[in-house]
């Protein structure tokens, strides 16, 4: 089924080259620790934005509370490590499953809502989780640290405990995650699930009247999205070595992830990648250059970009490519017509 010619398109080749550069980046001597850190975060957000896209784009449910799965992932993995001695390599998968189960319950309960109502409920749930985690000192007898959160003390390097001095190991973890997630999204988009989700997004009632099991496919989308978000959240927790309810169940993070996906192109494959690849470095660069006083500036820019995109480019930045192609095509057509007319007149 795989056509060799189709695979070797210019785009695919370029993407492979970029990935190779990324893979070799940490080995170049001139790459500083900060470049590594920045690329780590960018890749993490590309990963998260793609995961979000599964439910926000493919399934059409705009959630602004998706960060709750990040929080669940972080807390489960950290608590398993601190109290159960379970390595985060295993812990992260357990965290993902826990998140998927919770997502399943949430989805089952909230999916009958459409549009804005769904968004409202997602934010309410996020707030609920945050306040609950901040208010409770322990869960099932294990300390959660309440509002203070949990800290992973530095006790030397440890591979099984994901404790490293340099960020390079995390770099590769995020790189692999990012690649696998985008591949997964590509797979979903072109699979039966993807087709059904597209149908549901376009016209849910028509799809259901044709026999498509709406709830099943939406749940599949939400659970896989939640699983991925939590996986990322677990690794992120070990990357930061300290977590607390406010930063893990963070509305701003949720909004940023949604924003990147929308700006890039909701429901497309490269939209989230493009959105995150542009906006994360922008944010970090602004924080580094404008420093303390103007630290809110990046959010102002985010907001302006979002407004402009919604107004003028509702399908996201990836649609620029289509517009460009369309214009080129039209120009070509005009040329051909002119040539034809010229030859007729001869």
């Amino acid at each position: 089924m795989i056509d060799k010619k189709k695979l070797l398109t210019p785009k695919n080749i370029l993407v492979t080259v970029v990935l190779l550069i990324l893979a070799l980046l940490p080995i170049f001597p001139t790459t500083g620790a900060y470049a590594i850190q920045l690329t780590c975060l960018t890749m993490l957000f590309i990963y998260w934005a793609s995961a979000y896209n599964i439910i926000g784009g493919f399934a059409g449910h705009t959630s602004l509370g998706h960060a709750c799965y990040v929080g669940i992932g972080a807390y489960v993995a950290v608590m398993l490590y601190l109290y159960g001695g379970i390595s985060p390599w295993i812990g992260m998968f357990i965290a993902g499953i826990v998140a998927a189960v919770i997502a399943g319950i949430i989805g089952y309960v909230t999916f009958h809502m459409r549009g804005s109502y769904y968004t409202l409920s997602s934010v309410a749930l996020l707030n609920c989780f945050r306040i609950a985690m901040a208010a409770s000192k322990e869960i099932f007898g294990f300390k959660t640290g309440g509002a203070v959160g949990l800290k992973i003390s530095w006790m030397g390097e440890s591979v099984s405990g994901m404790q490293f001095v340099s960020k390079v190991p995390f770099y590769y973890i995020f790189l692999v995650f990012m690649i696998l997630c985008v591949l997964l999204c590509w797979y979903i988009k072109n699979s039966k699930m993807g087709y059904y989700l597209a149908a549901i997004t376009t016209n849910q009632d028509a799809a259901s009247s044709l026999g498509v099991n709406i709830m099943q496919y939406k749940l599949m989308a939400l659970c896989s999205s939640a699983f991925l978000m939590a996986l990322g959240g677990a690794v992120y927790a070990f990357f930061l070595t300290s977590i607390d309810p406010l930063s893990m169940f963070n509305y701003d993070t949720s909004a940023r992830i949604m924003l990147m996906t929308v700006v890039g192109g909701l429901g497309t494959l490269w939209g989230p990648v493009l959105g995150a690849a542009l906006l994360v470095p922008l944010n970090e660069w602004m924080r580094a250059s404008f420093g303390a006083r103007l630290s809110g500036l990046s959010f102002v820019i985010y907001g302006i970009i979002l407004m402009l995109v919604v107004m003028f480019l509702p399908k996201g930045l990836v649609s620029l490519k289509d517009k460009y192609e369309k214009r080129r095509y039209e120009k070509q057509q005009a040329k051909e017509v002119a040539v034809k007319e010229a030859s007729v007149h001869e």
């Binding site: 370029l14 790459t31 470049a35 490269w270 493009l274 690849a277 542009l278």
Partner: peptide, 25 residues
């Protein structure tokens, strides 16, 4: 076309590297 998209992607990556690798020399 697809090249356009790939160029933007590469530019974005390059920009992020330049932004932080700039002051090293």
């Amino acid at each position: 076309m697809k090249k356009f998209l790939a160029i933007i992607l590469t530019l974005a990556m390059a920009l992020s590297l330049v932004a932080c690798g700039g002051d090293k020399p």
